[in-house]
Amino acid sequence: MTDSNIVTLPLDELPDGASLKSVIAQPSEIAGRAALRVELTKEASGGVPGVDYIDQPTFVLLPVEFENGVIEVDVLSRLAAGAPDYARAFAGIAYRITDDLRRFESLYVRPLNGARLNPPGPRMNRGLQYFAYPEWDFERLREEYPDGRYEARADIGPDEWIQLRVEVQDRNLRVMINGGQVLSLDGTKSAPIRGQVGLWVDIGTEAFFSNLSVTAL
């Protein structure tokens, strides 16, 4: 803690006060860096799509309060053993998580859709995703907004550290990856509410998180 409005967590271990929601987490080291390894529990992975996984409350819930401000974290993700064919190493940040877990927003990367892998067809423009739980998952957003405004192209790939920066002000959102802007939204899908921050993962993903910084405005 460096300031009353800034929280920093190295994520070299599970932070005090954190809790696990349908995930497992353990200290690890990868690519020369200490990190927190996170993936779904076997129970969640074997559950029902749209109920136990796919844009659900599957995260490490951190003891960090947030409504507006900036969240920064480094994430490295890759496919887990036995990942389904549609898995893309989904990992990112959840924020404004309510105490009952009934509401939150999220930004996550899909490294296997990263531009540097030159994926086929529309996957090239689906390297980053916004969604708002529970009503606005990626599938509904994609159906109702075929212009793809809630997704973005990103020059990323699996097994590499990705610097993710999320700037939130009410319903305005800006996302930076490795220092470059990839997504800007003037109208997100959830009214501002104070909640907690989480390290989010989805099906078929082995994710590593490091160097979290949360600045509340």
Score class of each variant (00 low, 15 high):
58 T>F: 02
21 K>A: 09
74 D>E: 14
94 A>H: 03
134 P>S: 06
89 A>Y: 00
193 I>V: 10
181 Q>A: 15
196 Q>N: 06
104 F>D: 04
39 E>P: 08
18 A>W: 00
175 V>M: 10
123 R>K: 08
192 P>D: 02
111 P>D: 14
187 G>H: 07
87 A>W: 07
23 V>E: 06
173 L>S: 12
106 S>M: 04
214 V>G: 02
136 W>K: 04
215 T>W: 10
11 L>H: 02
193 I>P: 02
27 P>V: 04
153 R>Y: 08
9 L>K: 02
86 Y>D: 14
54 I>R: 13
7 V>S: 05
113 N>E: 11
95 Y>R: 10
118 N>E: 13
61 L>K: 03
139 E>N: 12
39 E>N: 15
192 P>Y: 00
6 I>F: 06
94 A>I: 04
121 G>F: 11
45 S>T: 05
122 P>H: 11
34 A>N: 10
141 L>H: 07
92 G>V: 07
68 N>D: 00
132 A>G: 11
39 E>G: 12
160 E>H: 01
176 M>R: 09
110 R>V: 13
203 I>K: 12
145 Y>H: 14
152 A>G: 05
176 M>W: 12
172 N>P: 13
29 E>P: 04
165 R>E: 01
182 V>R: 06
92 G>H: 10
155 D>W: 06
103 R>T: 08
159 D>E: 13
191 A>F: 09
21 K>F: 11
145 Y>F: 14
205 T>G: 09
120 P>T: 06
77 S>L: 06
191 A>C: 04
88 R>W: 09
111 P>N: 13
173 L>M: 15
5 N>F: 08
171 R>V: 06
143 E>Y: 06
104 F>G: 07
31 A>V: 12
125 N>M: 14
154 A>H: 00
39 E>A: 15
95 Y>S: 05
1 M>T: 12
18 A>K: 02
207 A>V: 10
62 L>V: 15
30 I>C: 05
217 L>E: 14
129 Q>G: 08
69 G>F: 01
106 S>R: 02
73 V>C: 07
169 Q>S: 08
189 K>W: 05
56 Q>E: 15
184 S>P: 09
74 D>A: 08
204 G>C: 13
59 F>A: 10
217 L>H: 14
27 P>Y: 05
21 K>T: 09
183 L>W: 00
20 L>K: 01
161 W>E: 03
214 V>S: 03
37 R>H: 09
121 G>D: 15
66 F>G: 00
20 L>P: 02
113 N>F: 03
139 E>K: 10
26 Q>E: 12
58 T>K: 05
192 P>T: 07
10 P>E: 10
122 P>M: 10
174 R>K: 08
163 Q>E: 11
179 G>I: 00
33 R>K: 12
38 V>K: 01
212 L>E: 09
77 S>G: 13
158 P>V: 05
186 D>Y: 08
116 R>S: 15
15 P>L: 04
18 A>T: 04
117 L>N: 05
67 E>W: 00
139 E>H: 08
90 F>R: 15
72 E>L: 05
41 T>Q: 07
